[in-house]
Every structure is written in C-alpha cells, then in structure tokens.
Amino acid sequence: MTTMLDEKKYTANLPASELPEGGVWTEAGSSLMRKTGDWKVEQPVWDKAKCISCFTCWAYCPDSCMQIENGRMAGIDLEHCKGCGICANVCPPKVSAIKMEKAR
C-alpha cells in the first residue's frame, strides 16, 4: 500500500525540536507505515475468478486490507494483514473466493 508519508519519520526517533507542539501528530493514517503483515502465520489467498465483489470481506477485515479498484475487489494488502482468517470465514460459502494457507 503506497502512502505519501516521509519514511524517515518512522524509522528514526525525532528530537523534541522537530515534533509538533502538544504531542499532536499531523500525518493522518501514518499507521500504514507499520507493517503488521509480519505477524501472520496464515495468509489469505484471493481467487479473482471466483470473487463476486460482494465486499463482505471488506466490511469485516479488522485491518483494512481489502483493496478496491474501480468498484471491484482488487486484492489483499498482505503488508498489513495479520492473518486472522475473518475474510475467508465471511466469504459466502457459495463463492469461497478466499482460502487461508501457511504464510510465506
């Protein structure tokens, strides 16, 4: 997932003089700089051919990993996916477009 954030701010600890006043942080959504994807032991595998873009997985993914492009499901952000398996579980049984397998 691409972001416009300055990577240096998240790899080095900034000195007091470079911090916004009051402990405020101004880069909204900066948690995307944290790659929680390395937590997982299992990972979802999405089958584009089977997917009907019902967005049920999008509704329930706790880590906002379901990627949408042009109003269709486009993939899964494995950089942040923690491998919980909710997406595979909520995918309608008749569709069954997501399977969990051992994380690579």
Partner: peptide, 29 residues
C-alpha cells in the same frame, strides 16, 4: 455495502496494533 466500500477514502486505516481478529476496528471503519 458497495457504496460504503467505494464512496469515500477510508478514515480508519490498517497498521494498528490490535490483535489479529480483533472485533472493534471494523466498528470504526
């Protein structure tokens, strides 16, 4: 659901440190 998923950019994003399978993030999403 399609409108919810596609109308606006998400205001609650991933990379947070909730446990895998945590139940609350999608409430806020």
């Amino acid at each position: 659901l399609k409108e919810l998923a596609t109308t606006q950019a998400e205001k609650f994003v991933g990379g947070h440190t909730s446990c895998a399978g945590c139940g609350y993030p999608n409430i806020f999403r």
